[in-house]
């Protein structure tokens, strides 16, 4: 590890003052990934900008429309321990309580997990299922994109030089909807998803008919895979439909063989996890909250 400078600004304007100066700059929204990568020589930088002192980036709140606005560096433990969040967005809690591991979730953040752009990240399938968007800021303004457009490839995201991720926005969930995120790891902790699935279903007001389904898969392609499940809308949320969703998911999966899992294993997991997550999502959709 080479020596580098470290700054911990208090405002976004201060952050912008450190950018666009030719320095190799990295942001730290927790350190779960970036510190390890620096220590192992997988990344290098001249300047590390710690975002943890910026109030706007470390807080979260529901706005007047019910959208949950989460600062990119807000600690996961605070989010998933929030009673309101647990009641309104259990699908988010599924993912947030897995990222990084219990011992570091008082520092680890959604923003860090997203920007690291691992195909196996736990945040992205859940956020895509929830229809979340990301707010990206620079000295010249803000832009907002759906989460699924943020990933360009393993370790590559849509941030341009001078930009940083500032907010994750999760819209109020429709009535009779439910979201579930599941991942598979060989152990029960301290591991990276071999495959994962985030599923949101919305049921008709007075029947088990599916009004809409969103499915996103992790670790079965270079970026999160969004499964086209438009054909499921209008069908009854029964086991045949759920099996069909699993089949569609396995078709979309384009996994690789690596030390963490094989193609056969990941394709099977895409199906099994989609089925189990969809069952969980339907169950939640039927709960009265």
């Amino acid at each position: 590890m080479e020596a580098f400078d470290y700054v911990a600004p208090r405002t976004l304007d201060e952050v912008y003052g450190h950018l666009n100066n030719g320095k190799r700059t990295l942001f730290m929204a927790g350190g779960t990934d970036v510190i390890v990568q620096l220590r192992e020589g997988r990344r290098e930088c001249d300047l590390l900008i710690d975002l943890k002192r910026i109030e706007q980036l470390t807080s979260y709140a529901f706005d007047s429309e019910g959208t949950l606005v989460i600062g990119a560096a807000a600690p996961l433990a605070r989010i998933y321990e929030d009673v309101d969040v647990r009641r309104r967005l259990p699908g988010l809690v599924d993912a947030a309580s897995l990222i990084g591991g219990i011992q570091i979730q008082s520092r680890a953040s959604l923003g860090g997990n997203l920007c690291n752009a691992s195909p196996a990240a736990d945040s992205s399938p859940a956020l895509i299922a929830l229809g979340a968007t990301l707010v990206i800021a620079s000295v010249s303004g803000r832009r907002e994109i759906p989460v699924e457009e943020f990933f360009l490839g393993p370790g590559r995201n849509a941030l341009e030089p001078g930009e940083l991720l500032v907010e994750v926005r999760i819209p109020a969930q429709p009535p009779r909807s439910g979201t579930r995120y599941l991942r598979f790891i060989p152990r029960n902790e301290m591991d990276i998803a071999v495959a994962s699935a985030g599923v949101r279903v919305q049921l008709a007001p007075d029947s088990d008919t599916l009004e809409s389904v969103r499915i996103a898969l992790g670790a079965v392609g270079p970026t999160v895979k969004v499964v086209d499940v438009t054909s499921l809308a209008g069908r009854t949320a029964d086991s045949a439909t759920i099996e069909e969703a699993g089949r569609l998911a396995a078709e979309v999966a384009t996994p690789i063989d690596d030390m963490r899992g094989s193609i056969i294993q990941r394709r099977k997991l895409a199906r099994v996890l989609t089925i189990r997550a969809m069952e969980g999502a339907i169950e939640r959709a039927k709960e009265i909250r």
Binding site: R187, N188, I192, D258, M259
Partner: peptide, 16 residues
């Protein structure tokens, strides 16, 4: 060796 870390060399944790 492809898994020379405790992340990928999967020893049991207390939860396992």
């Amino acid at each position: 060796m492809l898994n020379s870390s405790f992340l990928d060399y999967r020893m049991p944790t207390a939860l396992d």
